[in-house]
Amino acid sequence: MHNSYWYYALLVLSISLFSFILFKKRNTQSLYLLLTNIGGAFLIETVIYNFLACYNYNPNFIKANEFYDNNLGAFVSNAFALPVVATLIAVFHLNWIWIIFFSGLFVGIEWLFLKLHIYSHNWWRLAYTGLGLPFYFAMAKIYYHWILRPSKGFQHYWILYLITGSLSASAHVLPIIFFSNRIYSPGWFENPGRDSIALGAIFYLCDSLYYCLLTKLSLKRNWIKYIFTGFLMYVVNLMLINAGILRSLVWWDIPYYVGLSILLLMLTEIIDKRLSQLPKIPFGYSSS
């Protein structure tokens, strides 16, 4: 059980650090930036972790399914530790010395987890982490710059897409991991857990794009979009079942994803408006 203690410690430290950020800043920009950073991390991990199998986590949270346990370890890293530190760097305008320091710190944590045998590399190397994290942290500073200067162009919708993706990915995949409510079987990998999570990742990337695009559609009767979205999600699920790609294992599975699609569309539209209405704060100014 010592495996999980280290991951719990990382989780508690990340939550405590973000609580400190919120206490000091007390603004919505910090929350939007965190969600943006999570969305960016999920996007990267979809490629290098889900499809290229770069490394493995062993937090020992879930004993019944090795890959789902592996995925939860990745979740601790990509939804908490890295995005929270990236948010800290951006909102407090920390310079490159701090970026290099935190990059080195995460390389050290990764090395420690390797030595403790609670994390392992396939083709990944510590050097890749050391080289990649400065760019990830630097992008957080750019994203914060965009959030503080709302616009309706590419920057606005890229931020909106990453935020929506962070919410959609978490709400889509976590029930699969914890409750085994459905199984995807596209036949991409021998491991059924990896196969299921990989298609779940593609699913969230596509539906997040759909929600963002639908925010551009203005209707007199806005409720039509929600009805259509729920119906479309229902049809897509039936098509996947009929194609033998999806197995729904509990009674609430399809109703959950239908309701989730409507909720995510509502949240996307709310966040879209809030991002547009955020005060235009000069970059470098610490808002309160």
Rank of each mutant, 00 (worst) to 15 (best):
S261G: 02
L72D: 09
W123E: 05
F61C: 13
S208F: 05
A171V: 01
K24L: 09
E269D: 14
W252G: 12
I109T: 11
H172I: 00
L199A: 07
L246K: 00
I147Q: 10
Y7H: 03
I227L: 15
V235F: 08
T215M: 05
W98R: 12
A86V: 01
Y136I: 14
A9K: 08
G259F: 09
L22Q: 15
S16L: 14
W146L: 06
R149G: 03
A127C: 11
K216P: 03
G230T: 08
I142T: 10
Y7P: 04
I224Y: 06
A41S: 14
A138M: 06
P59S: 06
H117P: 03
N56W: 09
I224Q: 09
V84L: 04
T164W: 06
L105C: 05
W252R: 05
I38T: 04
N27A: 05
G165P: 02
L11Y: 09
H117N: 14
I224D: 04
N122I: 05
L72V: 13
F228D: 09
W252M: 09
L33T: 12
C54S: 15
S276N: 11
S166Y: 01
F42Y: 12
Y55P: 09
L82I: 15
G39H: 10
A86I: 02
S248G: 05
L162F: 05
Y32G: 09
L82V: 15
R26L: 15
E110V: 14
D253P: 01
W96T: 13
K115S: 08
F231Q: 06
I118P: 11
D69Q: 05
I224T: 10
G259Y: 07
S19F: 11
V173T: 14
